[in-house]
């Protein structure tokens, strides 16, 4: 047997020459395809386009993609989309800010004192088991159908995940760090700043991601209850006129807002938790 033959001959148990490695069958999904994530959406878009072009999709059920794009252009050109977007964003941000602040304060108070926990934790757990959206009838009776009802609904939806995850994060702080803080004689404020808040930060940021989702979800609902501005109002109005193109524009905007805000929170998460990332790298 010559060396040039070796790679071609099948390996034999008694052959002294090194056998060529038999590649195992690949069981994993294999190498990632470039822009693989875009295949599904592109396929959907293609079906939608073909369906609209051939008249297979009735424009009264779903406008053609090009109609949606043209409508979006028109809405932006006459400033209506921006106006509604701003009205929605203002609501969502106000509710988010209030809810995050309230959730954070409640979690810290309840995490640091037994009395606080006794007072706060029960009601929040009860609130947790009632979907915020089920509270809307009561909130309408109390606050009317104006802006405050909408913002309060969003606030309540945001508060719960922020509270729960921050509180969990606080409780998970190793008691040994508390002991350390005592031996270096940290004051209350320094203890909060150096141990409690950074220790609870991973939990808080997780809660924030859920909170952002909750804020958009509540927004969609309250804007369809009774509103005179906002993306939801724009869509509701379009429904009464059968403008499916405007409805689709609204859906796309909601989707983009959700994606964008989640990406933002994740970015914050990455920047704020560098100390944890070093473990994974």
């Amino acid at each position: 047997m010559t060396t040039t033959e070796a790679p071609h001959t099948p390996a034999r148990a008694d052959a002294p020459a090194p056998a060529p490695v038999r590649r195992a069958r690949r069981l994993g999904p294999g190498r990632p395809i470039p822009f693989g994530w875009a295949i599904g959406p592109a396929l959907l878009l293609a079906v939608w386009s073909i369906g609209s072009a051939t008249g297979w999709i009735d424009p009264r059920n779903l406008s053609a993609p090009w109609d949606v794009v043209r409508t979006a252009g028109d809405l932006i050109a006459d400033g209506r989309l921006q106006e509604h977007l701003w009205a929605s964003a203002r609501r969502a941000l106000a509710g988010l800010a209030l809810g995050v602040a309230a959730g954070l304060v409640l979690a810290v108070v309840s995490g640091l004192s037994r009395l606080g926990e006794g007072v706060i934790d029960g009601p929040v757990q009860i609130k947790r088991s009632i979907p915020s959206l089920a509270l809307i009838p009561l909130l309408i009776l109390w606050f009317g159908i104006g802006e405050s009802m909408k913002i309060i609904t969003i606030t309540l939806g945001v508060l719960v995940p922020v509270y729960l995850h921050t509180h969990n994060g606080l409780r998970a702080i190793d008691s040994r760090y508390v002991e350390l803080a005592e031996t270096v004689r940290l004051g209350r404020a320094a203890f909060l700043r150096h141990v409690v808040l950074p220790g609870a930060l991973p939990g808080f940021l997780l809660g924030l991601r859920f909170a952002v989702t909750a804020a958009w979800l509540s927004l969609v609902v309250v804007e369809q209850v009774n509103a005179t501005s906002g993306i939801g109002y724009m869509m509701e109005l379009a429904r009464t006129y059968g403008q499916t193109d405007v409805i689709v524009v609204g859906l796309v905007v909601y989707g983009l807002l959700g994606l964008l805000s989640d990406g933002l929170v994740r970015l914050v998460q990455r920047r704020a938790l560098t100390w944890r990332r070093t473990l994974a790298d």
Binding site: L180, A181, V184, R185, L186, H194, P198, G199, L201, W275
Partner: peptide, 22 residues
């Protein structure tokens, strides 16, 4: 001052900030 069996450094503070804690 106490030195514990585990170094007990705050993982979210850099080394110098751990040293001057408090």
């Amino acid at each position: 001052s106490v030195v514990f069996q585990d170094a007990r450094l705050l993982p979210w503070r850099r080394v110098l900030d751990n040293v001057v804690l408090g």
